[in-house]
Design a protein around this nucleic acid. Structure first.
Length: 587
RNA sequence: UCGCGGGUAGUUCAACUGGCAGAACACCAGACUUUGAAUCUGGGGGUUGCAGGUUCGAGCCCUGCCCCGCGAGCCA
């Protein structure tokens, strides 16, 4: 867990939940105890939105010297699976958290829950309803309209007892009866209009098998599970606000030997260009728009991991976003800035050419080879240096050369001298072109006195470029990613979110030329390709690289601004949200 | 329509019990630079949703209005 408390102006110290806990501690409400929990349902994979909930609950426990549980909210056998339990545990560990008290399950409390339900029946606070779902729904009323009471609402207690036991014993078909709390059909809060506590489902539960034919609903299971575990602060997202009075009602009407936990709601994470819904993710996967739940374009933790996002960056991001009750959407650029700043510190620098253009150094003796020494990470001298082969024929980036350079372009062009990183100064003399006039080869001369990147006369060159020696280059596949959705708010205004899916969210380069040091990279390792961005070796096949995120790219900004200005002059207003034309493609 | 929650730079959040509206990211400019990166310095940006009221003084308190989100699963 994060060792040092980030004394930031925002976030960690001042949010309303921390204020409430400090207040509870001051008044001795829970005897100074702080016990939180992260309660996922094992019916899907964790995404970046969950990271916010995880970080909140675990860091609260950390800061207040408390505990944080991991409890699977597995009350719906039809959608849940052990595979998800395993995946969630794995992702949680990857993020860097260890739950207190092992892995817990609401399904372990089914018997206790059932006993408590009988208690409510005995008190006349719950009843068996024989009506079908449509009827119950119709009777619930609507906004501003009261509900009407079920004809079974005043069933005698002993009849309810008998029927509820018969439900458990399997005497009725699925859906034939439900157990409802007897609260108030007139309440303006719909959650209190006799909510369902148990439904009959003949489905095999991944943990309890066929032991149960009736399953508790979320509302009936959640608060009681919290109480069993001794949770003090039960945090959830805003859409559960209306459930809070029900949460309290159940707890108040049971003779619990436990302190009553309290529910507090906060806003879920929103991210631009990123719908945060399992439903949308599922469509992406099922329709083949992405390769799977761990596709590097997916906002799932598994996707982000394959993409190369460091867990520390994800944590720093959700911490910075903070906790509030305002529905809010953060810019994805903020997340990316945390990824960059983490990787800038830690990633080794390497050279790779994504779109190769041949350079021939005419005054370099044919057949002669050399190596030059390059720094592994200027941010961390401890990472040392490496030797990189140099030769007469090199690869450089296509957009590092222009026959007719526009203003402010200061890379290579005819007659101009540039520095090859860690190598020599070269000056372009002439080029070969193909039938269409495309440059196919650039001829240069080099200055032998410029070895290592400087000359005795101390003359300056404006540009430093990356390169790879042609004879020693390894050829690799590199995936370049752009936003998965072009619109900042996919699905806004009732649109289909998939309508703004970016058809160019992945560009695959199969003949990237990499320096030989990149031949053996550990799966998942992230390196910086100098001047291009951060790239992660694939988890399964480390000869394939995924672009984690590009470097900031001022030249791309200049070009974008020019394009915008000229198109405004021309009267067309393009949205240009895919950031095409940028080598680093940061959007 | 009813209930609950919310509205402070482009975005996310601050502003102790009423006392000069700030930070980060983004954007722009400059410095530095063997990554057009990083780093450093500076800058533009706000009628605190609107209208009244209380007060010497309101983002904060009061009244009315507007806008946004959530809520009528035997999902969570």
């Amino acid at each position: 867990m994060s060792a040092e408390p980030t004394d930031d102006t925002a976030g960690s110290s001042g949010d309303f939940i921390r204020a409430k806990i400090a207040d509870d501690n001051a008044t001795g409400k829970f005897g100074g105890r702080v016990h939180t929990r992260f309660p996922p349902e094992p019916n899907g994979y964790l995404h970046i939105g969950h990271a916010k909930a995880i970080n909140l609950n675990f860091s609260l426990a950390d800061e207040f010297d408390g505990r944080c549980n991991l409890r699977f909210d597995d009350t719906n056998p039809e959608t849940e699976d052990q595979a998800y339990v395993d995946a969630i545990c794995e992702d949680l560990a990857w993020l860097g958290y260890k739950p207190d008290g092992g892995v817990l399950f609401a399904s372990d409390y089914f018997e206790q829950l059932y006993q408590w339900a009988e208690d409510l029946v005995n008190k006349g606070l719950a009843y068996v309803d024989d009506q079908d779902p449509d009827t119950i729904s119709a009777q619930r009323g609507g906004f501003g309209r009261p509900g009407i009471e079920s004809p079974y609402r005043d069933r005698p207690i002993d009849e309810n007892q008998r029927l509820f036991r018969a439900m458990r014993a399997g005497e009725f078909p699925d859906g034939a009866k439900v157990l409802r709390a007897r609260i108030d059909m007139q309440n303006e809060n719909m959650q209190l209009r006799d909510p369902i506590m148990y439904r009959i489902k003949r489905a095999t539960h991944y943990r309890t098998g066929d032991d149960w034919l009736i399953y508790p609903t979320y509302d009936w299971a959640h608060g009681q599970s919290d109480a069993i575990e001794g949770i003090t602060h039960s945090l959830c997202t805003l859409e559960f606000s209306d459930h809070r009075s029900l949460y309290d009602w159940f707890l108040e009407h049971l003779d619990l030997p436990y302190e009553r936990p309290e529910q507090t709601e906060y806003a879920r994470l929103g991210l631009t260009h990123t719908p945060m819904s399992k439903r949308v993710f599922l469509r992406l996967v099922e329709t083949g728009r992405v390769d799977g739940w761990d596709d590097p374009r997916m906002p799932t933790l598994r996707g982000l991991r394959r993409r190369g996002y460091p867990p520390t960056a994800i944590r720093a991001f959700v911490e910075r976003v903070g906790i509030a009750r305002t529905n809010a959407t953060s810019e994805i650029e903020l997340l990316e800035s945390f990824v960059r700043s983490e990787l800038n510190r830690t990633a080794l620098r390497r050279m790779a050419v994504l779109r190769p253009l041949k350079v021939i150094i005419t005054n370099w003796p044919e057949g002669e080879e050399a190596t030059v020494e390059a720094i592994n990470n200027p941010e961390d001298p401890g990472d040392g240096t490496r030797m990189v082969p140099f030769g007469r024929e090199l690869w450089i980036e296509q957009d590092d050369f222009m026959l007719e350079p526009p203003p402010k372009y200061y890379r290579l062009s005819p007659g101009r001298e540039v520095r090859l990183r860690a190598g020599y100064y070269i000056t372009a003399t002439h080029v070969d072109t193909d039938a269409e006039g495309n440059v196919t080869c650039v001829y240069c001369t080099y200055d032998p006195e410029s070895e290592g990147g400087s000359t005795p006369d101390g003359r300056k060159v404006k540009a430093t470029m990356h390169w790879v020696a042609a004879d020693h280059a390894i050829t690799r596949t590199v995936h370049l990613y752009d936003r998965l959705f072009t619109e900042p708010f996919p699905g806004e205004g009732g649109a289909d979110p998939l309508a703004s899916l970016n058809p160019e969210s992945r560009e695959t380069v199969t003949d990237a030329k990499l320096e030989p040091a990149l031949a053996h990279v550990a799966p998942g390792q992230v390196v910086q390709f100098e001047r291009l961005g951060y790239f992660a070796a694939d988890l399964d096949d480390p000869t394939v690289f995924h672009r984690t995120v590009g470097l900031r790219d001022e030249w791309a900004n200049i070009q974008k601004r020019r394009a915008r200005e000229s198109s405004q002059g021309g009267g067309s207003k393009g949205k240009g949200s895919t950031g095409k034309g940028s080598r680093n493609n940061n959007g």
